[in-house]
């Protein structure tokens, strides 16, 4: 039960990766002492060919995961191998360079590869962290459920304030109308809340609904007679609304953090493929 891609087949690909890394290091250390480590030695070519084939295979995951009719293993197994063998590439390719770096297309390919792998490692962490955090945050409900609750509470608040004084009506409905959820990439990743509220004709920031709650509490202290009971009900409902918005905002932020790395990982893989081809072609031209 509960076999994730990390412990797929008892971590088979972890051990494969370890063996690959170990063998590469041993071969590197044992190579003929008078040879300068370089991509051009027999070991250099071996490691380079292995690395290039690995990269092609790693990129092929994009095809495999959409090839739904394929009987060849499970996507979980592929992802497991992708993660472990992809990480091992860091060692294999570094040994292939022989630690010779420069300002050229060869090093560009290497750097792109490192960025892709590091973004992938972040992805592993994100996939193991955020789904659980989001599920706990939402207490096993879906985001759609929570939006429905928000809709209900908004309707409830609008009905409740309709019997109250005009200033309360104005502030609460403007706070509801000017509540912002989501936004651009940065707003989602950083959890920026640009909600506003209009009080006495002026528009104020209303981040996390703090401003409107403060105003309502202040207004409650001035309330008299039957207004007190009705207004305190509104304050309570508003507190619940504030909590729901926090959950929604956090969930959107977590989701953005969970997915954002793919926007680096995938395009840079394509860039890496281009740089890799250039690297290989140029090496053979200038041989």
């Amino acid at each position: 039960m509960h076999i994730s891609f990390l412990n797929h087949a008892n971590g088979r690909y972890f051990w494969v990766a370890i063996a690959l890394v170990g063998a590469s290091i041993v071969a590197y250390l044992l190579q003929e002492p008078h040879q300068t480590p370089n991509g051009g030695t027999w070991l250099g070519y071996t490691l380079g060919t292995m690395g290039a084939l690995l990269i092609l295979w790693l990129i092929y995951l994009g095809r495999r995961k959409r090839n739904f009719a394929a009987g060849w293993g499970t996507v979980r197994g592929w992802v497991s191998a992708h993660v472990y063998l992809g990480t091992s590439l860091l060692v294999v390719a570094t040994l292939h360079t022989g630690f010779q770096f420069g300002i050229n297309v060869h090093t560009l390919a290497y750097v792109l590869m490192c960025v892709v792998i590091v973004s992938g490692l972040y992805g592993v962490w994100a996939y193991r962290t955020y789904p659980e955090a989001r599920n706990e945050l939402k207490r096993s409900q879906t985001l759609d459920d929570i939006f429905l609750q928000l809709e209900d509470i908004d309707g409830q608040l609008k009905r409740d304030v309709s019997a109250l004084a005009a200033d309360i009506r104005g502030v609460v409905s403007s706070a509801i109308d000017r509540t912002e959820i989501g936004g651009g990439m940065y707003a989602q990743l950083a959890g920026v809340d640009s909600s506003k509220v209009m009080i006495d004709g002026n528009v104020y920031p209303n981040t996390d609904q703090v401003r409107v709650v403060a105003w309502l509490v202040q207004r409650l202290s001035l309330a008299e007679g039957s207004e007190t009971g009705k207004l305190s009900a509104v304050v309570r409902s508003y507190g619940a609304r504030q909590k729901l918005l926090q959950v929604i905002r956090s969930d959107i932020r977590f989701q953005a953090l969970q997915e954002a790395w793919l926007y680096l990982h995938v395009p840079l893989s394509i860039a890496l493929l281009a740089a890799l081809l250039t690297h290989i072609v140029s090496v053979f031209i200038y041989w």
Partner: peptide, 24 residues
């Protein structure tokens, strides 16, 4: 009719999808 079993489980990249019988 698919070789390799239920495609929902086979396509799951993280291993979240599982098929069980009540005994499990």
């Amino acid at each position: 009719d698919q070789s390799g079993g239920p495609s929902c489980v086979r396509a799951c990249p993280t291993g979240a999808a599982m098929r069980l019988s009540p005994e499990d």
